[in-house]
Nucleic acid binder design. Structure first.
Length: 295
DNA sequence: AACCAGGACACAA
DNA sequence: TTGTGTCATGGT
């Protein structure tokens, strides 16, 4: 036994690990063979899907594993979520196609910073920028012998002390001043990320949108992916496309109308519905408005 | 090689 | 309130 290696098996069902880790909610997971390698907090983590489990390996002493169980939402029963969905054809089809896709529960600062960097970038580019940011400003974390180096996500305090041009060197372009401002607000306590958790969703959203570079969409991503507000419904270009094509084909509907529809239609677990629609559009649906044939 | 990407913002009409 | 240009970068 390698003394530096710690393993655990989380029993799960209806958990599509690959879809979950690659569905554009977290940007630090890389597939290596059958496994996924990433960093959660200040720990290197390797995950592999079993038949009815997730096998996890870490280097540092893992303690009670609750941090990873919580991150993965391994104990969430998906059935009540799916049952609460409206019984309409497009969503039911997307949910069937994306069976096992989950929402993670990420660190608020990492989530906020990542999505500030996400605007009008493809997911692969977001991964590259976040990776550059972590390499440059993150702290090295312990990895298994032979594994490539890994880094924690830089803290708000670290980013706050960096110059804008140093951030631009990470290829984040016009998002650099936004990230810098967010980091400074988070460090100064002007933005109290820990306090948002216990606020009503609308209030938490207002606080997030007070950060430069954070509009409704990015705020909703943080509400959903970090704080777990189940009704948060981020509308990006893909979800917009999904709403138009699947719910209002060949009709001209304004973004505001679509927003109002989304707020009322998808119910208490709208966030999950959103993730299924997003992933469905990106993977199964060819985006031309013509239905891709399901197996 | 155009077109577009998990947008936000200032400003015009 | 709704529409348009701008921002930086590079994948497809």
């Amino acid at each position: 036994m390698d003394a530096g290696s710690h393993r655990i098996s989380f029993p799960v069902r209806d958990y599509d690990l690959a879809a979950t880790l690659s569905s554009g909610q977290a940007f630090r997971w890389r597939q290596t063979g059958a496994a996924w390698v990433g960093v959660v907090g200040d720990r290197w983590v390797r995950l592999e899907a079993g038949p009815e489990s997730i096998e996890a390996e870490v280097c540092e002493t893992p303690g009670d594993w609750n941090w990873l169980r919580h991150y993965l939402q391994a104990e969430l029963d998906l059935e009540p979520v799916l049952r609460a969905f409206p019984d309409d054809e497009p969503l039911q089809r997307a949910a069937r196609a994306c069976r096992g896709l989950r929402l993670l529960r990420q660190d608020p600062w990492e989530c906020l910073a990542s999505f500030i960097l996400s605007s009008t970038k493809q997911i692969i580019q977001i991964q590259q920028v976040v990776d550059a940011l972590c390499r440059r400003f993150g702290a090295p974390v312990r990895v298994p012998a032979g594994a490539p180096p890994a880094f924690s996500f830089p803290t708000a305090a670290t980013i706050a002390a960096v110059s804008e041009s140093e951030l631009r060197a990470c290829k984040m372009g016009f998002r650099a001043p936004y990230l810098l401002a967010a980091a400074r607000q988070a460090r100064s306590g002007d933005l109290d990320l820990a306090a948002l958790r216990q606020l009503p969703m609308a209030t938490a959203r207002e606080r997030l949108m007070a950060v430069p570079g954070v509009g409704r969409k990015i705020a909703d991503c943080v509400l959903l992916f970090a704080y777990g507000f189940p009704a948060a419904f981020p509308v990006d270009v893909w979800v917009m496309r999904a709403l138009r094509q699947l719910y209002f084909p060949r009709r001209r509907v304004s973004p505001k109308q679509l927003g109002r529809f989304a707020e009322t239609h998808f119910g208490p677990h709208a966030g999950y519905a959103q993730q299924y629609l997003f992933h469905y559009m990106r993977t199964r649906h060819n985006g031309t408005g013509v239905e891709a044939e399901a197996a």
